[in-house]
Amino acid sequence: MFILGLESSCDDCSAAVLEERPGGPRVLSLVRRGQDDLHAPYGGVVPELAAREHLLQMGAVVREALSQAGMGLRRLDRIAVTQGPGLVGCLLTTFSAAKALAWREGLPLVPVHHLLGHLNAARIGRPDLPFPALALLVSGGHTHLYLARNWTRLELLQKTRDDAAGEAFDKTARLLNLGYPGGPVVDACARAAASAEGPFTAPRFRDGRPAWSFSGLKTAVRARVIRDPDLARAGAEDPRVRGLCRGVQDTIADWLLKPLPAHREATGARSLVLSGGVACNSTLREGAAALAHPEGLVLAIPEPRLCTDNGAMIAAAGALLAPAPDLLSLNADADLPLT
């Protein structure tokens, strides 16, 4: 089965062609147009600009994906597209186009929940993953831990109560004037650091329920920059900046991974999936690897190009989900719940 997967829920416009075979999915093409240069001067994604850019890019992105796969529309078996959650003006670009294309060509359309896409990014490398699995999906918009019963069923275990982990990376980079997006630059500085500045106080919740919070960490970084304003001007070569980045990165990775053993114990999970843009982070990847083995968990972390938002993960999820019985009645949903 050949699937065209489309994704534009935030600031990446991506299309991919995937072949679903008995042994698992194979990526035939993956085209992604990021918008980092567009949003960099603002220090974060500007939804209106992202939506304007998607509309200009989408046609070329899809054509390139089809062309790289050597695939005409006639050979496609279905189209999969992100239905939500995400920024509505952005979602609507590929969603409206996918609907129109599927309708015109008589192709089945599969609406995909974005987070099922991130889970299925791991299926591309580990189609034989044992379930249930802990799925830690971390990006600039999400910090969620799920119990995956299979490739299409997620049950929430815990999530952030405020900001996503990716926002803490972006904010740190912004406060230190290191550039945008924050994840890669903070990672590079952290790796070059001789030592980590810290520690940062972990949040505690009165109700005692497992959760994350990253707003306090952002405030703590801001407080350090206020205390030592030179940090905002010192640049990526400065040992104090590097030390602070290392401290922030170690803290985020530590907080994200800490609750996993208890959840493994409680759920009997057999695998750990780490996906989403923050899954590109080197400390988090190393930490997840170090944790998985002693816990007896099979580890699946997609390659970096499949961790960030991309059409291949949507196609991979779309290969397993049922096409919409009536595509005309479908709409994109910025707050799409998991069913």
């Binding site: 409206s96 186009a97 129109a100 294309l101």
Partner: peptide, 20 residues
């Protein structure tokens, strides 16, 4: 309207992908 325009133009672009 921003959203209406997006829907219309993206729909046209989707049909363009079918070669129109």
């Amino acid at each position: 309207g921003f959203t209406g325009l997006r829907t219309g133009v993206a729909t046209a672009e989707g049909l363009a992908l079918a070669g129109l």
